[in-house]
Amino acid sequence: MTQSHLAPEVMARARDIVALYPHPRSALIPLCHLAQEQDGWLRPEAMAEIAELVGITPAEVLGTASFYDMLHTEEVGTYVVTLCTNIACMLRGAYELLHHAEESLGIRTGSTTADGVFTLEDAECLADCGRAPCLQVNHRFFGDVSPEGFDKIVDDLRAGRLADEVPHHGTLVRTERDGGLRVEAETITAERRATAAAMAERAATAAAASEAKANG
């Protein structure tokens, strides 16, 4: 068997996620997040395997993923810094903060620093307007951010002081589902065995009937 791009433990989690839904395709977005957790962004190899898992083509995965802002089909930095510039944040200095961020990181909005550590994005409302202007780093919130506060966040991230709060880009949900209407493995095996036996019995009956008919 050829080695898959998604690591075995990631593949196992992916199969668990697919099993949660009545239709496999529903798992598409969660699986894209999972692939980003492994790779930091959505690689073509990962999209091909997601397509296999949910029963569609790789082109359909790309076509869907490219609709969504959080799914990156190009490589991004370890930390994706997303500043909100929508109305509530704009009224409280979001664009001034964005321009400061560009100068401070030495990049324009939408690009990544040469060392591959930071990607800067401007976002639509992130729903933390009580602490405007706000930003997210890998979807972890920082509110009431001043230019000095921004520089401190960047310094802390570089120095690894926020490693617990902010995982690497792509890691979205660190809590795994452990409840559910789980069925024990023995039950599944027993039911499968019973079904197979019933099918064999029906086949045997049908074969006997057609034989009897042929013999007239």
Binding site: A127, H139, V173, T175, D178
Partner: peptide, 27 residues
């Protein structure tokens, strides 16, 4: 839940797990 709510997703997932354990969801 909107994807940007990473903490919210973690909290609701944990709540669902705990509610299963408590017998408030499930069979």
């Amino acid at each position: 839940i909107r994807g940007e709510f990473a903490l919210g997703l973690e909290r609701v997932t944990a709540a669902v797990n705990d509610a299963y354990g408590h017998g408030a969801i499930g069979r």
